[in-house]
Design a protein around this nucleic acid. Sequence first.
DNA 1: GTGAAAGCGCTAACAA
DNA 2: TTGTTAGCGCTTTCAC
Lengths: 308, 308
Amino acid sequence: MQLAIDELGYRPNITARNLRSGRTGVIGLLLPELSLSYFAELADDVIAEAERHGLFVLLEKSGGDRNRELAVLSSPRMQLTDGLIFSPLGMSQEDAHLLPLDYPLVLLGERIFGSQVDHVTMRNVEAARAATEFLIQGGRRRIAVIGAHLEEVVGSAALRLQGYRQALETAGIPFDPALVSYTTLWHRSNGAESMRALIASGVEFDAVFGLNDALTLGAMRALQEKGARVPEIAVIGFDDIEESQYAMPSLSSVDAGRGQIAAIAVDLLIRRIDEESGSRADPQEILVDFKVVARESTSDVSATARRI
Amino acid sequence: MQLAIDELGYRPNITARNLRSGRTGVIGLLLPELSLSYFAELADDVIAEAERHGLFVLLEKSGGDRNRELAVLSSPRMQLTDGLIFSPLGMSQEDAHLLPLDYPLVLLGERIFGSQVDHVTMRNVEAARAATEFLIQGGRRRIAVIGAHLEEVVGSAALRLQGYRQALETAGIPFDPALVSYTTLWHRSNGAESMRALIASGVEFDAVFGLNDALTLGAMRALQEKGARVPEIAVIGFDDIEESQYAMPSLSSVDAGRGQIAAIAVDLLIRRIDEESGSRADPQEILVDFKVVARESTSDVSATARRI
DNA sequence: GTGAAAGCGCTAACAA
DNA sequence: TTGTTAGCGCTTTCAC
C-alpha cells in the first residue's frame, strides 16, 4: 500500500482535509514588532515549540497599534488558524471584553489581566524588584530608571517600576522622581535619548535600571559617550536578550522566562483547541520563573553617586 | 443585503473557500533563524509587504540545516501556502535541481544561483568592494576580514571576500592571508572569538571589515576589550542592521538593500502565483542596490597598522 | 473485511 | 435577474 502511495506520488490535499476536520494545523502569533529582539526571540521560541507539536505559525504584527490588534482579532483571516497567541500592546485592560471567547486564545504580556482568557506572563514586579535589590546589594543607592511610561497603571513599565519602588522601600531608600526617565517606546534610541536627558538634568546617580535590554543598551551607550564608566555606574537591564552578553561591557539583566512562556503558551493553546466545544475550562493565569543574570555591567566597583 | 450579513453575523468559511479556489492567501517564508537580527528584520519587511497585498505569512525556520530545508520544501505542509520565499543556508548549488519547479518559489541569498527559480539577491561582491574601498580611501592598508568561510565558493562569505580582494587589487595592496579570519557561524560570539584569535596571532592591521554586522559588533567588542580604540582601528560591517547605529561607537556598514529584497520577492512570488499554469515565464535573477553607511567606527583618524 | 456515499461550505456554471 | 446544483478532496459512516 505504502509502495503504491510513493509510486503514484500521491499527496493528500491539506485544504480538503482541513475543511473536513475543521482544523488547519496552524496557529497565529500576533506580536507588536519583530525588529525588537525580545519579540524576535519569542517568535523563534514559539515556532520551535509549535513545530514540536506538529503545528505551524502564522505570524502577524500589530506595530503595537490598538486598531490593528482589534482588526486581526475580528478578521476572518484568523479562520485560517486553529488558535491565536496574542501579545497585546495597543489594547489595554478596558478592552478585555473585546477578546473573543469562542476562539482558542492565549494572551501574553502585561496589558490585560483577569480576562476570561488564558494568560501567561512573567513576574514583572518580583523580577524588577530582584534586579533593583541586586544593585542595592552592590552598594548603590541612587538608581536611575530608564523607560517608565507616564500614567500607566498596568503594563510592563508600570509593573517593573513598581518592583523598583518596592525594592527601594524595603531597603529604606527614599524614592526620587528625578531619577525616573520616561519614554514612549522601548527601542535602543529611546534609551539613549532618555539617558542624555537624564544626564542633562544634572541629577546624581550611581546605577541604572533599564526596563528592557534594548533601552538599556542604548542608555549604556549614551552613558559611555559622556565619558561615564560602566560598571562604575552599574547598569542592569530586563529580558536578557541574546546580544546583552556581547555588549561592551556585557550587560547584566533579568531572564524573565521567555522560553518558558513560549512553551506554556503553546501548550495552553493546544489544550483549548482540543477542548470539547461545550466544556470550556476556567481560564488560567500562569506566571513563570525569573532569575538575575549578573555580567560585567554590574561587577563590583566602588560606587559614588555623582553628576556626569 | 450587507445588513442581513451583519445581523446574522455571517462569516465566510475561509477553508471552504480555499478548497474551492485552490488558494489560501498565505505565503511561506523559510529562514534560517529569527534571532539573527538580519533575518528578523527581513521577516518584518516581508510580512509588511505581504500585508500590503492582502497575504499572510507562515514563518518556518530551518536552523540553516540542509535536511530541514529539504523537508520543508517537499512536505505537504507547504500546501497550506500559495508559494514560498526561501532563504537557503544549508542547501547549496548542487541542490539546485531539488528545488520544486511546479510550485511558486522565490529564492533569496547567495547559496544557489542560476536555477530555474526566481532569485532576488544583493550585490555582494560590489557592496563588499565598496566597503573595502571606503576603508582604503580612509588611508587603511592592512584590512583584516572577519567571518570568511573555508573552501566556500558561492555563498555570502565567499562573494564578500571576493569583493574585498578586488578592492585590494585595484588599490595595488597585496592580499595577506594572515589578515583573513574564518568562522563557521555569523553570530556575535563568532566575531568576538575571531578577533581574539586574530589579535593573538600577532598580525598587524589598521582596519577591520566584518562580513556581517552581528559578527562585526562582536569583533569590535573584542577589539575594545584589548584596549584598541575604534576608529583608530577603523571598523565596517555588512547588512546595516538596526542596532549598528547604537553600538559604541556606532558601526559603519553597507546597506545591501534588505527592504528592497523583501518587496521584490513578494512581488515576484505573487506574479508566479497568478501565472497561468501552462505559461511559466522565464526565471528572473534580480540584484538590488546597496550603499555604504558611514558612522563613527570609520571616522577619519590617523591610521597606523600595528600589533594590539 | 472492502467499497460506496454523504457531506464539510464555498463558488462557478447553469437553469429558470 | 434569481435560484439551484455540482464539485473541490477529504474522512466518516453505513452498507455489502
